[in-house]
Design a protein around this nucleic acid. Sequence first.
DNA 1: CACATCCGAGACGGTTGCGTTTCGTATATA
DNA 2: TATATACGAAACGCAACCGTCTCGGATGTG
Lengths: 228, 228
Amino acid sequence: MPVVSAAADVETTLGSEPTLHDALRAGLAQRSATEPKGRGRPRSAAAHEAILAATLDLLAAHGFDGLTIDAVAARARVGKATVYRRWASKFDLVVELLQTVASATPTPDTGDTREDLRQLVRNMVQGFSHEQYAQVLSGMASELSRNDTMAETFRTNFLQPRRQAAITILQRGIERGDLRPDTDVDVVLDCLVAPMYYRRMISGRPITPELGDALVDQVLRGVLASPS
Amino acid sequence: MPVVSAAADVETTLGSEPTLHDALRAGLAQRSATEPKGRGRPRSAAAHEAILAATLDLLAAHGFDGLTIDAVAARARVGKATVYRRWASKFDLVVELLQTVASATPTPDTGDTREDLRQLVRNMVQGFSHEQYAQVLSGMASELSRNDTMAETFRTNFLQPRRQAAITILQRGIERGDLRPDTDVDVVLDCLVAPMYYRRMISGRPITPELGDALVDQVLRGVLASPS
DNA sequence: CACATCCGAGACGGTTGCGTTTCGTATATA
DNA sequence: TATATACGAAACGCAACCGTCTCGGATGTG
């Protein structure tokens, strides 16, 4: 393989959806405050970002198992030592990536429960329509069920904020009288959210905005011909 | 590592739930008809089964990526040549495993749609409560989103039969007048099935029989306070 | 019995990734 | 300016797996 185009095979997402890279840059800007200020040459922020960006691309392309430090360093045009100086393992590297890239989710509040849920689910649909976003999630799945620390990190940094937004909407709906007071929030949440993961990772069926609206409608009114 | 206990680290499921191994044996018995009957020593059926059984254990323990032919041969107490004589790659090996182990799902038919769905979902809950079953699914997730042929095989042999059973129940319910005629079968199906995959592979929340019943109830009647 | 094929075991060379180390150079502080 | 640290690049020895091949022996068919 020619050295020049070593990174070319990963460019499947070239120029289409930079979303996760944007989130990465934003996350880095936010936590840039912590500078220890030692004596010699300071660590390069550019290298730091390049490494995380390369990790993101390769994680999406090859999954967690397929991710290698060699490839990360090569893609980031950085020496391996520069990677190991900051992270002890690819595990630590991915953990920091997740923490940096996971952004807070806004909680819709339109006054109408159905509309709030629609916006929430549409946001998720949009996320899953970004190839890289969906690929990262799929690529992490095996690892989550095998590595408790990774699962914990993923759930705390990524899942929990999104989950909280949904819970807030549902509880508001209950208080407001839109939803039945005996609503099982956990189950409703699963019905709204799980199908998108399922389609992406298991069944392969399409994830469209129409699916999002259909899920909300389905969850709200059920399918009984004569509701009891 | 001592040679004697080379397989000891995989024995997490020891003595608890032999279900998938049973299904494997049953599947092998079913398709044992095809014997080409050549001239020299015939291939050992025992070795064949031992290899598939070892593949199953290691796939559950380490995922598709972590599966190696070396380990399969060692665990099956078989020479590597014996593996390669039958399968060209670990891909082919796993494909045959899936085809052999995927059993047909019975379609409940009690006359009551709610009860049919309950039984269907309870069956799935029971499946997911077998550690090995759930681990195999998780371990395949990354591969499914990256390998179209594997995804195709998995969906045809494993997913489709189960999906068909659920569709049958829902359509019977519609014809019978239990369910609304405009019921979106795909969406209902996702709401019933996806949460179990999601809990197992993503959120880590528990999968209990109560969850199964709650899902059916939720899907049937929705959560609106005043159904339109 | 002769022969073909398979058996388990393991050696083989090749490749990949690991984590460390060395090189000459660049960039900060004191 | 002297010193300390980081930089990119690449070589190192090590280990795991790959897929092939060889070995002596086992087990069928004709």
